[in-house]
């Protein structure tokens, strides 16, 4: 395992991704998702919206890190708000 050079931040990152997947699975078992159309141009399920949210969050982070001098925490906050908006109204 040592060759994988784990650090605390990446460990937290992957744990939260794993937790999200587990959470989504449990949610799906308790109340199955219904495909619906929100403000996104395509109709999506819960899982689709989570994926779109995570992917756009990655690009938000890249944009903030690469082309602005803002703190990464701002990117994280923006992504979290965006993810919530997407899950609720997307």
């Amino acid at each position: 395992m040592s060759w994988m050079v784990w650090t605390m931040p990446t460990a937290i990152f992957f744990s939260s991704i794993a937790a999200m997947l587990a959470g989504m699975t449990i949610w799906e078992i308790l109340s199955p998702t219904i495909e619906r159309k929100g403000f996104l141009p395509i109709s999506t399920t819960r899982g689709d919206r989570l994926f779109i949210g995570l992917l756009s969050a990655a690009f938000i982070h890249l944009g903030v890190i690469g082309f602005t001098s803002l703190s990464i925490w701002i990117a994280l906050a923006v992504s979290a708000i965006w993810l919530l908006i997407l899950m609720r109204w997307g």
């Binding site: 060759w3 994988m4 050079v5 784990w6 650090t7 931040p9 990446t10 990152f13 992957f14």
Partner: peptide, 8 residues
């Protein structure tokens, strides 16, 4: 995962 670890 390893790539992510390397990258930081």
């Amino acid at each position: 995962m390893t790539v992510v670890n390397y990258s930081v």
